[in-house]
Amino acid sequence: MNEPTRPLPRANELDTQEFWAATKNKELRYQQCDGCNTVVFYPRRHCTGCTSGNLTWKLSKGFGTVYTFSVVRQSYHPFFRGKVPYAVAWIELEEGPRILSNVIDVDDPLVDVQISMKVELVWEEHEEINIPLFKPVD
């Protein structure tokens, strides 16, 4: 029997497909409006700050802080039920966007994950795309 796998995004979803395509090259990208500088995240085709906007894809350096988190103890999902306890977190990237992800590479998420701790991007590799996760900054 196959091991259950992490649920993955649809690579061809029309608003987010460029974001996911960039992850193939291990690039974490976000959009910013040429006209009004609004940072747009999650990705879209239009600017949410002005109506004239042309959005430009920017590259995040992949550093941020844990804005908040929870350690999940119970999940019925076939993949995640085997991963408990694991940390889900809102990561505030240095460039501004807040991304939902996991904090990994810690001995015990109940002890080693803290609000405001510095984290850096680490890629979990998959066939079509890569998944942006975070680990504590050394």
Binding site: R6, L8, P9, E13, T16, Y42, H77, K83, Y86, S101
Partner: peptide, 15 residues
Amino acid sequence: PADNMDVFSGMTLVA
């Protein structure tokens, strides 16, 4: 599209 960004994280409703 918002779901397509969140789906991999395993965030439960409780979380």
